[in-house]
């Protein structure tokens, strides 16, 4: 790592070049694929691979701390939360082709183009007019990457750092408050409170609904519970099962040949049925 740092600023070693020309196209292809892939999860995964490639670039360019933090924070936590939401939404949901807001697509296109122009102009200026100084001279990369970063963050930039932290903290707390404000409307009852509510008669009955029980002949939900005298317990009848229309199964004569796959005389059998 330091070997790289000590080389002349701007010079590229062989190893760095090899890594760049292998991972650069991969990162670019993944980024483009992320936009054009249909499935949302595939798109998120391609973004993950782009971020991973970027992390390796950081590591190769003498910023191991930044690289691994990129993997831990962005690839590990942020994109995992994205995936979490995408998986909850469902696998079959893809982009809808209906425009919800009027003129949304045109506005999006224009704004995107504007952003692209800004980025390209900024980057081109950075490519042409900024002189690379290398890492050996500066504190951030020399000796120990972590120490250099720490001295910068907690030295000259401590106020910016603390303010950013406070901002993020406020956002997280705000999200918590919003989420909890919605869920405390029906606050959760503990086990004991539920029992007392049941005893007070706030529920339809004290005990749970009877299952098929010891007197029934089967333990399927379709079979009603039997009371000790043999009669059917009315609470155990499932309304859903009762309401489902049932067609009686046709009586088909068992034919052993149907199992073997040879259907030599099924036509004769059909004729028999029709008669």
């Amino acid at each position: 790592m330091n070997v790289l740092a000590q080389e002349a600023a701007g010079a590229v070693s062989t190893g760095e070049a090899v890594v760049f020309w292998i991972l650069g196209p991969i990162a670019l292809a993944c980024a483009i694929g992320m936009i054009f892939v249909r499935s949302a999860v595939h798109s998120a995964l391609l973004l993950v691979s782009t971020m991973f490639c970027l992390a390796i670039f950081y590591i190769v360019q003498s910023a191991p701390f930044l690289g691994f933090v990129q993997i831990i924070v962005y690839t590990g936590a942020v994109m995992m939360l994205f995936l979490f939401v995408l998986m909850l939404v469902g696998r079959d949901s893809s982009d809808s082709v209906v425009e919800v807001l009027r003129g949304q697509r045109v506005a999006g296109l224009l704004l995107g183009l504007g952003l692209a122009v800004l980025l390209v102009s900024g980057l081109s200026r950075a490519l042409v007019s900024v002189e690379p100084v290398g890492l050996a001279a500066d504190g951030a990369g020399s000796g120990n990457n972590v120490v250099g970063l720490g001295q910068l963050i907690f030295g000259p930039y401590v106020y910016a750092f603390e303010l950013t932290a406070a901002l993020l903290m406020t956002a997280a707390l705000g999200a918590l408050v919003f989420a909890l404000a919605q869920s405390t409307a029906h606050d959760k009852r503990g086990q004991r409170a539920t029992v007392i509510a049941r005893l007070r008669g706030e529920h339809a009955r004290i005990s749970p609904l009877p299952g098929p029980g010891v007197f029934a002949t089967a333990n399927s939900v379709a079979v009603p519970a039997l009371l000790p005298d043999g009669s059917i317990a009315p609470e155990s009848l499932s309304e859903i099962i009762d309401a489902t229309p049932v067609a009686p199964v046709e009586d088909v004569l068992p034919d052993a040949r149907a199992l073997t796959g040879r259907s030599s005389d099924t036509s004769a059998h059909d004729g028999e049925d029709r008669s």
Binding site: F52, I71, I72, G76, N145, V146
Partner: peptide
């Protein structure tokens, strides 16, 4: 120089 972070990163991947 950031060996401990490697383990965390691998866990998160």
């Amino acid at each position: 120089p950031v060996g401990v972070l490697v383990v965390l990163a691998c866990a998160s991947i």
